[in-house]
Amino acid sequence: MGILDKEFSDSNIIITNFDNLMNWARLSSLWQLGFGLACCAIEMMATSASHYDFDRFGVIPRNTPRQADIIIISGTVTLKMALRIKRLYEQIADPKYIISMGSCSNCGGPYWEHGYHVLKGVDRVIPVDVYVPGCPPRPEALLEGLLKLQEKIRNESSVKKTA
């Protein structure tokens, strides 16, 4: 269901509840932090370029965390980078969402065993909302991940906390 509960056709009045309106506004303009890490960043760029067109979901890259709503962690998180990612995350205003893109940021990926300088999953430093598997995930998989995130936002409530 969309945001409309009731519409009065002869005037510009619609009736909806607060959560629906807020969630609708949030999920359809998820501005992402323009931030690429590794191989997956190239697929993320391909997703936002001409063929896959991330813009149609309202995802526009912003250059500063203060204007962003989501971060797509696109690639291997190293120990050196993890502290910076945490700081970037803290700079984003609430509500904020994280998509972990690719095996590396999900769990360390191919570097899980001998990677002395690789963090085995970005969820060790920041909370993650959606995990997108793949090495690297295809742009379609990233789009699917975004749709999952939108679904999650759609069911949020400002009164009762959901998981």
């Binding site: 590794a38 291997t76 190293t78 191919p110 001998h114 990677g115 300088h117």
Partner: peptide
Amino acid sequence: GYLHRCFEKHAEAMTYPQIIPYTDR
């Protein structure tokens, strides 16, 4: 060094064909 993924260490622990996917990255 923000993306140092220890390729050379991996190469010492893998067999020759196993290294090829790491070279991709």
